[in-house]
Amino acid sequence: MTTDNSKVIADFLALFAQKDASKLAPYFHPDIAFHNYGDPEIQGRDGVIAVWEGVFRIMERVEFTTLHSAVNGDLVIEEQVHGLALPGGKLAPIRNMAVYRMRDGQIIEWRDYTNQEYARSLLR
């Protein structure tokens, strides 16, 4: 993997459409901390992979798109659209802010922020 942090994140996000959590693993530092949409923080690579395995089981489609990105050394901040679709449902364009802190080309800290009520309304 490259150590260009913006490229690492772009490559990482492109994998979500494949819905294979094992492909995300190389992007996670073993000590990653993941805080998603206000849920309790998940610690460690295995825990984060388990979260995404669950999401991929539930969602028919998962597509992440970056609208804007700001990079300062090991910090990458992105405005994103998380496209999520339940089986038989339309792709819901959920606006999201993501903050990634990198270490040695891997994500060691990841925080996602969105309006959960709005996201749920789009998924109905």
Rank of each mutant, 00 (worst) to 15 (best):
L13D: 06
M102Q: 04
K7M: 08
H35L: 07
R57K: 15
Y37G: 01
N36A: 14
A25T: 14
E60S: 15
W52P: 00
W52I: 05
L84S: 01
Q80R: 11
I9F: 09
T65S: 15
I94G: 00
D112G: 10
L91D: 09
R95H: 09
I94R: 00
V62D: 10
L67Y: 07
S121H: 06
N115L: 03
V8G: 10
Q18M: 15
S121N: 07
K90M: 09
R111A: 08
M1L: 10
E78S: 10
I42H: 04
Q43A: 13
E53S: 08
D11I: 05
I32R: 01
V81L: 11
G73C: 03
S69L: 12
Q43E: 09
I9P: 01
R124H: 10
G73I: 02
T114W: 02
P30Y: 03
Y118E: 07
P93F: 03
N36S: 14
A98N: 02
E79W: 04
I107S: 00
R95F: 06
D39Y: 11
A92D: 11
G88Q: 10
I77A: 12
A92Q: 08
P87K: 07
L84G: 00
R101F: 03
I42E: 04
T65W: 05
A50S: 11
I58P: 00
V81P: 01
M102E: 02
A14L: 12
G44N: 00
A98L: 01
L15I: 08
S6I: 08
H68T: 15
I58V: 08
Y37K: 03
M97S: 14
Q18K: 15
R95L: 06
D46K: 08
N115P: 01
Y27D: 03
T66P: 04
W110N: 01
V55H: 07
F56V: 11
N5I: 06
I32P: 00
F16H: 13
A85Q: 05
N115F: 02
F64M: 12
H68E: 15
Y113D: 01
Y118T: 09
S22K: 12
T65E: 14
S6E: 15
E53F: 02
A21M: 12
A98D: 01
V99I: 14
I58M: 07
A10L: 13
R95I: 02
R101G: 02
F34L: 06
Q80D: 09
H82W: 06
A33R: 12
G83I: 03
G89S: 13
H82R: 03
V51D: 06
I9N: 03
L24D: 02
D31K: 08
I94D: 00
S69A: 13
F28K: 02
E41R: 08
K19Y: 12
L86P: 04
E117M: 13
D20Y: 14
A70M: 10
M102K: 05
P26A: 13
K90G: 14
H29M: 07
